[in-house]
């Protein structure tokens, strides 16, 4: 599978899922791989709610550059970020193959703009490798583990770490 058209895989009634991004200790993890800024990445398929085609988001005021804005996801408002920019790379180039991967982490649902999705893979535990410590490269902290497919490195992203912090002024201040 090299390309997914429009909206697929909607395991929706499953509701909020537990954070399944922790890939340690699982023998057969199922990963969705995709390309972003020319590099290979993957997320746990359990965190993926759906994949949808790109549509122009409504921009948000005073947001960091990686926040592209928000789109209408069947009646609710979905924040979309450019994953490449989130990882400190140049913005994703416009391309008809661009898709938004909708991921869920706890109660939060987020869209990730990526170049294109690649495949669904099932690496075994011994194919996975811890991320070697690299000096403060932007976004290095977003990956949980690595593995290699067709001689190319794929980084498995932690969905909880990709999501930006949200500010909750009152409750935090009062607490």
């Amino acid at each position: 599978m090299t390309q997914i058209e429009a909206t697929v895989a909607v395991p929706e009634e499953a509701g909020p899922k537990p954070d399944a991004s922790d890939v340690t200790g699982q023998d057969r993890i199922e990963l969705l791989t995709f390309r972003c800024g020319g590099r290979g990445f993957a997320v746990n398929i359990m965190d993926v709610r759906e994949i949808r085609s790109w549509s122009e988001p409504t921009p948000l005021p005073h947001a960091p550059p990686f926040m592209k804005g928000m789109v209408n996801l069947r009646g609710s408002v979905l924040p979309v970020m450019d994953l490449a920019q989130r990882l400190g790379q140049p913005p994703t180039q416009d391309d008809p193959r661009n898709v938004i991967i909708v991921i869920q982490n706890g109660n939060r649902v987020h869209g990730l703009l990526v170049d294109a999705v690649s495949d669904i893979v099932h690496p075994t535990d011994d194919q996975l490798q811890d991320v070697p410590r690299v000096n403060a490269e932007d976004g290095a902290g977003m990956a949980d583990r690595l593995f290699v497919v067709d001689d190319k490195m794929i980084q498995i992203l932690s969905t909880s770490r990709i999501l930006p912090e949200v500010s909750r002024p009152f409750s935090e201040a009062i607490a």
């Binding site: 409504t58 005021p61 005073h62 408002v77 987020h110 949200v166 002024p169």
Partner: peptide, 19 residues
Amino acid sequence: NFGHIPCVSAATILGDGQV
């Protein structure tokens, strides 16, 4: 999903589906 966004209190979806 968003937390507090300056200058904005909420969003809506207009008749054409745009946020």
